[in-house]
Design a protein around this nucleic acid. Structure first.
Lengths: 97, 97
DNA sequence: TTGGGATATCGGGATTTTCCGATATAACTT
DNA sequence: AAGTTATATCGGAAAATCCCGATATCCCAA
């Protein structure tokens, strides 16, 4: 758990927005673009207004920080939050940092 | 409470180290360089190994993010943690982000 | 087996961050 | 008033980040 890497991943308005969308995917994305593994990249990109390459990079940053997980299924990659990571981060800030 | 500003402030190893020292100042600094208002800049600088200007800047960044508070006393500025900010951040991550 | 769709990676210009030395300011001392 | 000490601010070189367009890869369908 690299603290600096996590905080850097969170230091961006667009990435915070993505995390917020992924908190309640059914509220923000149509059912056809999500499943139990998460939400596909394309629909996140479309909602964000940023380019495909940027969103792909941002998802990679969030994933490397451990905040989200990826599942490949056919030509799609589905991303969802890793809630354990957020719980751990909350505890870390509460008692360690 | 600007989330991005807070996470940026936390996205640096030296600043995290300072926050850690300020969590238990009596453990990390001699009594003569601290009081109830916190720890003075010079002793933080000395311990960090960074230059005076850098530490002053870093303390300003942490202060602008609301994570620490400054108290001027004579020619010294004492800095201490704002624990309410950390508690609020922990809750924010636990339930909002 | 080839074409198209979804995602990842590459290369880069613009901006921000990192950390420094030099300088300014403010308060204390003599 | 002049010198000293503590801290803040300024200017800048190097590195990192932001976000893009172009290209590569991977998978499916015809």
């Amino acid at each position: 758990m690299d603290q600096v890497e996590i905080f850097k991943a969170l230091s961006n308005k667009s990435r915070l927005e993505i995390l917020n969308w992924l908190k309640n995917p059914e509220l923000h994305f149509s059912a056809e673009h999500q499943n139990s593994s998460g939400v596909c990249v394309g629909i996140i990109q479309e909602k964000s207004g940023l380019t495909q390459s940027t969103i792909s990079e941002y998802l990679t940053i969030l994933k490397r920080a451990g905040l989200i997980e990826a599942t490949r299924s056919g030509q799609w990659t589905y991303y969802k939050r890793n809630e354990e990571a957020f719980a751990a981060l909350s505890k870390l800030i509460e008692s360690e940092i």
